[in-house]
Every structure is written in C-alpha cells, then in structure tokens.
Design a protein around this nucleic acid. Structure first.
Lengths: 367, 367
DNA sequence: TTGAAAGCGCTAACAG
DNA sequence: CTGTTAGCGCTTTCAA
C-alpha cells in the first residue's frame, strides 16, 4: 500500500527477455540492433520480430555506459528569450535530430552562475556542446573545450572552433546603403561592451565610415533590448543625426518607437538600420532595414561542425567559420531630406526636460 | 597514428579512482555523494576533498542505469518557431533546471513523423514528457502516457494531465470589450480545425456573442501564421465587419497588415483582437489588443506538475489545470465609428479583382 | 559506519 | 555467424 502510489507503467523488456524469447544469446540480440551486418539475416529477422512483439527498445543510457556515445548534445544559450536565438535553436535542433542526436537545451538567463550550473549538469552527459552568446571568459570556455568538443557561436575564438557572421561586410553594406541615400553622418547605437559582436560591428562601421568619408559617432552602451533602444532614443534626441545603425534589431525597434513618440519620423527624419533580422523586424512600422544574419544556418552549421568534431574531425584551420550576411532594405531607411525637420517640438519629449532637445545644432563629429 | 585524430581530453576519474586515493571502498565514495548521512562526517569530508582535487564528478548516466532516475525531462513542441512557444520554453526550462533537471528539447516541425521520432528517441531517457501543441491523436498520447508521465499543454484531455488557459473567460472578455465599444457584429477568424484551442475559442465567442446580443460569424480555417492572417484579410474584405477576433496573435498581425495594405484602417475601420499576447504583439502598429495567456507560467506549471507526478503524486482531479488569461487592451481596438468608411476604394485591393470588395452591403448575420 | 559483492542493460573482445 | 565472458560507473543489499 505504501508503494503503489505510482501508477503502474509497463516495465520495458530488456535484451535478455528478447534473447530468451528468440532462443539466442543476449549478445546476438545486441548485435542485431547495433551492427545488423554481423548477424545472419534470418536470425536478425526473428529477433526483430520478437523484439517488436515484446515492445523492446534498446536503452540508450545503458548503451552509452559502455560506448560513451550518448547521442546527445547540449545547446547553452545566454538568453533563450532573445529572439535572436529563436531560429538558431530551430536550426540546431533540426541538425541534431537529423543526425539522430537529441538536444539538451539550457538557458543561462544571462547569469554566469546558471551557465556554470547548466554546464555542470550536462557536461558529462553529452558528446559535445554549442555555446551561444556565452558570458564566460575565454579561459573558462577553453576549460570546457578541454573536456568535451565545443563550438562557440557568435564569438570568434582563437583556439576553440567558432561560427560567426560576417559582421565587417554586413556593417559595410549598411554604411554604404546609408551613404547612397545621401547621409553624411552616422550614429552607432552600441550594445553591451562585453559583446564580441558589438566590438566587431562598431569597428567595421567606423572603418567603412572613414573610407566613405562619412562622419561616425557612437553612443551607448545600451542593453540589447527594446528597452535599451528606447533609452537610446532619449539620448539620441540631444544630437543631430539623420542616420543610425544599432547594435541589433531589438535596439532598433526600441529606438524607432522612442523616436516616434517624440514625433520624430522614421525614415523621414532619421533612417534606422538594425542587425540580425530577427522575427518582428518586418512587423514593426516602418519595417526595419537590417543586416540579416542567417539565423537558422548559424544553428545548423554550429551543430554540424560540432558533430564533425565529435566524429573525430580535426578543424582544418584555426579560423572561425564565417557566414555571410545580407542587407535587407525595408522601410526604415530613406534618402536624407534636405530640410532639417528635426528636432521639432521641444516639449514633446516626456521626462527629463527640454534641455536635451533644444541643444545647439552643431554638426556631428566623427567618433 | 590511426587513433590520435581525436584531441586528447582528460579522462574523467571514476569512483574507483577516488576510492583508491582516499583509502576507502568504492561503495563508501558512492554513499558520500548519494546519501551523505550514511557516512561518518570525517570520512565524507576526506572523500570530498580527494574528489574535488581529482576533478571527480559523478556520472549521471551510470547513476541512472541503476536508479532509473535520469534527471531529464523532454519538452516536445509542435513548432518551435511559433512565438507562442518562446516563453513557454523558457518557463519550462527554468522550472526544470530549478529542480535540478535537464530539459531535452524536440521540435516536431508540425510533422507527425518527426514528433514520433522525437518521442522514440527520448522516451527511454527521460523521466517525463511535456507535450506542447501535439498533433498526435488522443489514443497515441494515452499510449505514451502509459509508458512515462506526460503533461499535455494547451489541450484538455480526460485521462492525461493537462494544463490549459482559460479560453472561455478570455474569449468572453474579448467579446465584452468589443461590445463596450459599440460593436454589434464580430467575425472570428479561425485557426486550424484540428486545434483544440480553436474549437474552444470559437465556441466561447459564439456563446458570449449570443448572451451579449451581438451577431457572430466565423471565417476560416487559416494557417495560424502571419501569412494565414493576410489571407484572411483578403477574404474579410468581402464582408462588412467592424470587429474581428482572431485565433491567435500571429493571425491578427497578418490580418492587420493585409487590411492596412487595402487602405482599411485599424482600429478606425476595423477593431482587431488577438489571442496569446506573444512577443511582437505590442511592437506592431497599432499595438495589438489581445487575450493574454500566461505563457511563461504555462511552461513552469507544466513542468512542475510533471515533476510532481514523477515524484509519485497522483493528480487529485482528472480535470485539466486551467490558468487565467487577461485582456490586454492596446491600440487595435476602438469605438465603432458611426459612419461606415469602409470599403473605400474598390481598386485598391491587389490580386483577384474588385468583385470581392464591391459586394452588397448586407448586414452580417450570426454564425 | 564500512566493505564486499551483485547487479542496472548493453557492448565488446575472444573463442569456437 | 554465435555464444561466453567481462566490464562501463554507479547503487544497493547483506554482512561484518
């Protein structure tokens, strides 16, 4: 009476049950499932019959114990709610299951501790790990990589295989696009300082700006979220800019929204370019022009490369795999209007005062 | 030379290594980790020291083999890219890791075969399963539930524990809201026919409509996507309605977009209410009024209940757990304007002709 | 409180 | 081609 709380679930038959029922040795049953070639066709057939009849299924854990092949990989995300990760997750999952692997998903929720715990929990279970947007230090990551194959996503590391997008070309395309639209000055709205991508993007934008003779400045850092973008809008209102490029789409979306509530029109007054092309980028108004990352491919590539390493491949080069980006032009960018229509109404801005808006209109300087 | 392709990774020490180094029996080491109480304090301490020094970590697979406790659960999703699932995933993951469990994630990509495979792959590894938006038949689900604890999400089942949102109340609130805004007729834009939620929502809306003396009709089914919503917009243009409720937010977003390209204004010409309150619902223009589901809580509740069952709890009632919804009023709904301003320009509509738009203006009928 | 021994379910030599 | 025999790393009686 004490024990029957759990509803009875049919106990799974083992290899021994099948062996007995089929009149063969257990090892033969094992072979029939793990290397069919090594068993006479008829025998294998009979075993298979008996097995399905009994409802036998090989226990992957037991198998893993002797082979060390668990057929599992882990995907560790810095923040699962970041839409940037959505398609990556799908890509990764698809690649994994396509290869017969199961994917463990762990969300660090931007917390170092949680990330460590997740690693701790999964490390000994999986054959390899994809770390996306990890907050860990380079040495910490290397530490992990010493124990299990690791692929780092969106962060180039010298000695750990990584997959990144082509930020330099993407940034350059963004700047070129704005230049073609007659913009002469660009503001970069920065993301987290610790972000590898942020560094790459800013540097590339600055360089492209120099080459194309645009003046470029940077504000930030901001949180890489819609809220962060709205904050940036407040700060941006104090300055004259006709064009801005943001760290990512979330920031761009927040920025547009913030600007719009101040009666600043997008794209008539300010053109905005984001990065990543997340879900939603084309749903906002105006639809966001953005440097699209091949999100799903990012996920599949990471997993495929990981599985290659697991399978014994040595990465040929020590260099990161770089995936191409492409500029998706939508409604948030337009030709610079000759007449400065902005700022318009000093009092529109909510919160901290008109000071910000009514500033002297000196031309933006580079850097 | 043939074997050294794989970079050497430090072999993990076992319980035996620790035992030897600490001068105790392996079983004692095991106890020290699994039931500390059963080991003399000093001994345990010593073992612990040696263990950390050697970098020992108990192998969960091996442990699972003898205890059948794998500390893993699976979350099987019908479609991982559906934003409806994003927060659910996070909630589930959080609840799992909080309980020391690891979550396997599998995406069925709306495919029955893939769902089966995922189940096949994970079933014997996990202690329980959360099925979200499953496409499987009731009997198939029951089949699974006979083997491992299962919680079904967003679908009420008689004999399998499930967690759902309060669609009836949510639908009712939506209808009430529209009625308060003077709308007299409502169109429900339906989602997939196989969807349990769709049935619930439609039925509830119809009932609420009856009670509040509104006429209610239904169009569809449509795919539960933005594209589906845009299709619905085309069809809706042939009819007079001042208010529509859609199967979900995605459809609502697509619908608004489609309507807007036809120069139909939201909310001036048509008020739109969605369901779920997914990420993006407040980013579109106008921001979407919607029946918000407690997405994250849905995930955590499912997992917590699952773990309770795993832990031996018997579900008290056979009834599904119902989570409350709440109506989030945003910009997509407004008071019905007296003057009918729509349809306006017969030729605006792209594609299949003016026929659709210029239809006789008969009042919408119920059902 | 600790040790010895017998598995958990499966795979992997090694013979035959 | 198939049976026999050891384990994989950990837990769990059963004694001591």
């Amino acid at each position: 009476m004490a024990q029957d709380r759990t509803p009875s679930r049919s106990a799974t038959p083992t290899i021994y049950d099948v062996a007995r029922a089929a009149g063969v040795a257990p090892s033969t049953v094992s072979r029939a499932f793990s290397r069919p070639g090594r068993v006479k066709a008829e025998t294998a057939e009979r075993i298979r019959m008996v097995a399905t009849e009994l409802g036998y299924r090989t226990n992957p854990l037991a198998r893993a114990l002797s082979t060390t092949r668990t057929s599992m990989i882990a995907l560790i995300l810095s923040d699962i709610t970041n839409p940037f990760h959505f398609e990556i997750i799908r890509g990764a999952e698809a690649a994994a299951s396509e290869a017969g692997y199961t994917m463990l998903l762990a969300d660090a929720q931007e917390s170092y501790r949680l990330e460590r715990e997740a690693l701790e929990r999964t490390l000994s279970t999986v054959e390899g790990i994809v770390m996306a947007g990890s907050r860990m230090s380079g040495t910490a990551v290397r530490m992990i990589a010493k124990q299990k194959p690791v692929i780092v996503l969106n962060r180039a590391m010298a000695d750990v295989p990584s997959v990144v997008t082509d930020n330099p070309r993407g940034a350059r395309r963004a700047v070129e696009h704005l230049a073609e639209l007659d913009h002469r000055a660009i503001t970069y709205v920065a993301g987290p300082e610790a972000s590898w991508a942020d560094g790459m993007r800013w540097r590339s934008i600055r360089e492209a700006g120099h080459e194309l003779d645009l003046s470029v400045r940077r504000i930030g850092p901001y949180l890489p979220t819609v809220a962060g973008g709205m904050r940036a809008a407040e700060d941006l209102a104090r300055q004259q800019t006709s064009a801005v490029v943001t760290y990512n789409d979330l920031v761009a979306i927040g920025l547009m929204r913030g600007l719009q509530t101040m009666r600043i029109r997008i794209p008539e007054d300010v053109s905005v370019v984001g990065f990543d092309n997340i879900f939603s980028a084309d749903l906002v108004t105006p639809a966001l022009t953005t440097v699209a990352a091949p999100l799903r491919v990012l996920g599949t590539t990471a997993v495929r490369n990981l599985l290659a390493v697991v399978g014994g491949a040595r990465s040929q080069t020590g260099l990161p795999v770089v995936l191409p980006t492409r500029l998706v032009v939508r409604g948030s960018t337009a030709r610079r209007s000759r007449k400065r229509t902005w700022p318009r109404r000093p009092t529109d801005r909510p919160g901290d005062g008109g000071n910000a808006i009514g500033l002297p209109r000196r031309a933006p300087e580079a850097q």
